[in-house]
Amino acid sequence: MTEIKSATQVEIKNLFGGYDNETVLEDINLTIHENDFIGLIGPNGGGKTTLLKIILGLLPYKKGSVLVMGHPPQKGRQHIGYVPQFAIFDSDFPISVFDVVKMGRLSGKRVFQRLTNEDDAIVEEKLAWMDMLDFKNRGIRELSGGQRQRVYIARALATEPELLLLDEPTVSVDFETRTKIYELLHDINRQGVTILMVSHDLNVISSYVKTIGCLNRNLHYHGKKEITEEMLKSGYNCPVELIAHGLPHRVLAEHQEGR
C-alpha cells in the first residue's frame, strides 16, 4: 500500500473534544494530506460526527489544536465541501434540486452580491457530474434517498472545495445506489479533491478508499489502508465488526492474514 506524502490540508494535534461534561474524543492526532481518500470507521457514539463538527468549526474543542488549510476551522472551512448526514434533513422542504445546489455558491463574503450566470453554469456542471442534471427542476422531496444524496454531493462540489467531508453518505440507500455513490466519490477523488468520509459501511469502503482509520474515542490511523494489529487487539468495535462481515483480505495487514 502506498503511503501518501503531499501537502497537508488538516492537521489535528492532541485533540480532546465533546459536549459539556462528556469527552467523546481523546488525544486525537490526524493529518490529512492532499489527494487522500480516508475512510473513517467506528461504532455509533465513537465520535465520528463529533470529529467532523470540530473540523468544520461547528463545535468548539476542549484541548489540542486543529488547523484547516493552515487556519482555524472557522476560517479554513470555506475550502471544505460538506455533505451532512442524510437523515437530519427536512425531507418535505419545498425547494428545487437546482436551488439546493446553488446554495453551494453562497458564502459569507458574497452576502450582498447577486449570483451570476457563471454560478449557474457551475451548478449545472456539478449536477451533470453527479448524473442529476435531468432532475434540476424537480423538487428535492420528489427524489429517492440516493438521488438526494447525489444532489447534496453536487452542492458540496459547487463550493469548489479542496476537501470533501462526508458523514455517512450511504445510510438508508440500497446496495446499487451505494456502489454508484462510491464510484462517483472515487471519480471526485481522482479529479484532485481530497475526501474524508465517515461511515460504518465497511465492506464497500474498503474497495474505494486509500487509507482507513478507526475511531472510538481514540483514533487509530496510520495513513495506510491496512487495519493494523493494534486496531484489532485494542478490542474496539470496528475491527471486530469488520472481520465478522468477511473483509477482503487486502485490507488486512499481511501478518493478519489467515487469522
Binding site: 468544520l56 425547494i95 446554495m103 453551494g104
Partner: peptide, 23 residues
C-alpha cells in the same frame, strides 16, 4: 429581498449555511 438567498439557505440547512460562513 436583501437576504433572500441566505434566508432560504438557513431555512433549508442551517449547518451547511454555517459552514459557508453565512451570518
Amino acid at each position: 429581498a436583501l437576504f433572500y438567498k441566505e434566508l432560504q439557505a438557513t431555512a433549508f440547512d442551517e449547518t451547511f449555511a454555517r459552514v459557508r460562513n453565512l451570518p
